[in-house]
């Protein structure tokens, strides 16, 4: 399923990043940072809600609009029943759609919103996502103060909230096309190696996207996956070569390896993950490069791992999904 859009543009973005991200490679590029993992709240879950909510507030300020001017908000996060998203949005009275494709949330949101804007049903939409390192640790792994040893293939859930404004008013960056991902299962069941679980899904989506639009890899200045991490990135390059005979290594990168400084942030292991990881990198750094025309055509392919701790204990595999969105600088 690949669509092209005529009339959808990236308006503004807002990022609110946590302490680990503020010490990383993009520290000066975020709209707002906090050094408090609780963000002034009393629990990790409430902290995540606040990150998400504040990112929406920053975005509304930047675009100079009221909540009532927004036609639709699409949001997703990692917490059970999407509580971060719904509690962050409850005070704004937006028409709200909640989505889940784990760390691929943002592009699922963009695809839905872009299709509705392009179809003339709505004029604008906000896509919001969030994740919090410690609320994820609590839900998916161990209590946060428990010092469980983790292998170097494990990734580190990013902390932050990020929002994106899509509109039919012309701007510098255009949402050009998208490909909806398929669930891919190649038998990986190790939650400490999610890059390996998601890489084949990214490969499948990239391959179908290029094939549907009859494009080569070199059409894009940059192909960017979400949170495969150091090892997942190598796996994807190798897998694309072996499976599809496509060489992506010259114009490919992964958001999970761009957020933190691996030299002095050893705790991030294989790199960043979580829905907000790719959002923080794309909104703060990639769009900036597009506005400066350093990058003109990019393919964004955030990757999600679909599973729960319960289903893993019941010996099921981790499923991978990746949605692709092509964005271009408007000439």
């Amino acid at each position: 399923m690949t669509f092209k859009y005529k009339n959808v543009y990236v308006g503004e973005t807002a990022t609110f990043a946590g302490p680990y991200e503020a010490k990383g490679l993009l520290k000066r590029k975020f709209d707002r940072i906090t050094n408090d993992l609780y963000v002034g709240e009393k629990s990790w879950e409430k902290a995540e809600i606040k990150l998400s909510k504040e990112s929406i507030n920053i975005l509304l300020q930047k675009i100079g609009k009221q909540a009532t001017d927004i036609n639709l908000i699409i949001a997703g996060d990692l917490l059970n029943q999407l509580v971060s998203s719904s509690y962050a949005i409850k005070d704004f009275s937006f028409p709200f759609l909640g989505i889940y494709s784990a760390c691929a949330n943002i592009m699922e949101g963009v695809i839905i919103a872009a299709s509705m804007i392009d179809g003339g049903k709505i004029d604008n939409a906000i896509i919001t996502t969030s994740s919090h390192n410690l609320s994820s640790e609590k839900q998916f792994r161990n209590p946060t103060e428990y010092g469980a040893p983790r292998p170097s293939t494990a990734t580190f859930t990013a902390t932050g909230g990020a929002s994106l404004y899509l509109t039919n008013d012309k701007t510098d960056i255009k949402v050009e096309a998208s490909t909806i991902g398929k669930i891919v299962d190649l038998g990986i069941n190790d939650p400490n190696n999610m890059g390996a679980a998601m890489a084949p899904a990214a490969a499948d989506t990239i391959y179908r996207h290029l094939k549907d639009l009859n494009r080569g890899v070199s059409y894009y200045d940059l192909i960017l996956t979400g949170d495969l991490g150091i090892y997942g990135k190598k796996i994807l390059i190798d897998y694309m070569n072996q499976e599809y005979n496509i060489d992506i290594k010259n114009n490919y990168d992964d958001c999970g390896t761009m957020l933190y400084n691996f030299n002095n942030q050893k705790e991030v292991l294989a790199g960043g993950s979580g829905p907000v990881c790719s959002a923080l990198v794309i909104y703060s750094s990639i769009f900036e490069k597009m506005k400066k025309k350093e990058l003109k055509k990019i393919l964004l392919v955030p990757t999600g791992a679909l599973f729960s701790p319960t289903i893993i204990y019941q010996k099921e595999n981790i499923l991978g999904i990746a949605h692709a969105v092509s964005m271009e600088v408007v000439e």
Binding site: S152, T153, L186, G187, N193, A196, I235, D238, Y239
Partner: peptide, 18 residues
């Protein structure tokens, strides 16, 4: 690619735990 062959590919890129 089947899952056995993919597992080989992953093992190739897996860092050695000390």
């Amino acid at each position: 690619m089947n899952s056995e062959k993919y597992q080989e590919l992953i093992d190739k890129h897996k860092p050695k735990e000390r």
